[in-house]
Write a protein that binds this DNA or RNA. Structure first.
Lengths: 152, 152
DNA sequence: CCCATCATGACAATATACTGTCAATGCTGC
DNA sequence: GCAGCATTGACAGTATATTGTCATGATGGG
């Protein structure tokens, strides 16, 4: 050690924030590219992937993704027009229909997820997954602290 | 250890991706809120903060922030209309004027940065800054790998 | 049963970003 | 110098997200 190599907390957070902004943009751009010829932007196949296991309401998808219900509603309406999803009846709520994948939607999503998996494997080959998981855990912790703080 | 607690690389990256999307949105929302009464959105004071030490061209700011030049140009034009910046002559390029803070811009930025610092200190109080720095370093590494991959 | 409250979908306005295109400027190699 | 290429600002079009408002459907307390 050649002295104090510890960043002040504030600077560390600022650096992380800048990195998150850049990384976010990069991930969206890659996602857009991977789905381009299938007509699936990042926003679209993120909605599709939210309901791959079980149909959910628009509001539920929005909560999972940390977006507003209106944003997801807009994308879902577009996906419905393009027959990638259908709104199915919700036994528990007449208005809040469930976003459900069509066969076309499921096939398109599978295709883009396969590409995404290949891409991820290529990019992160050889990295210890614990390092990735640790970064995710740190961000989760910060996010939860912020939620707590903001709800005061 | 109670067995294999290691996430497959792919799942770790997917989890990190989702967290980054949520965190990104959360940070932008907080930034918007902190500057609201000053008329400074996240996008605006990010541009201001990019030139706090030295004037830079729009293209340079865009590169630093990982955005397109057009996005930054738009915000910079708005900031110029509101007298928070002025475009000063660039001795090295006649068209590429330098984004330079006005006194008003510097004062507004100082105010919002002070609030942001207070907010950060409250949210991350007690956290080891090495953990934050490690997360930032991980994301930097991934970002650089992606850049390399994408430029092939 | 009714009323207050909450959740939801629809609609409108706006902010932030992207892509693409063009003309003007700057730069490099010959 | 000039020809070719890269950079820049301006403009147009679009995608993604936000906020706000309203009417309708759902729910729980009196």
């Amino acid at each position: 050690m050649t002295g104090n190599n510890q960043l002040p907390l504030n600077e560390a957070v600022t650096a992380l924030t800048l990195e998150v902004f850049r990384f976010n943009g990069q991930l969206l751009a890659v996602g857009d590219e991977l789905g381009r010829d299938l007509g699936l932007s990042s926003a679209r196949w993120q909605v599709l992937s939210a309901v791959v296991d079980t149909p959910l309401s628009v509001a539920h998808v929005a909560f999972n993704r940390g977006l507003t219900r209106q944003s997801v509603q807009r994308v879902a309406n577009l996906l419905a027009e393009e027959k990638l999803i259908i709104f199915t009846e919700n036994p528990r709520h007449r208005r809040a229909k469930l976003v459900t994948l069509t066969e076309l939607g499921r096939a398109s999503l599978s295709a883009v997820i396969a590409r995404h998996t290949d891409w991820v494997n290529k990019v992160v080959a050889g990295i210890d997954s614990n390092i990735i998981a640790a970064a995710a855990a740190t961000i989760t912790m910060l996010r939860q602290r912020i939620e707590t703080e903001e709800s005061k």
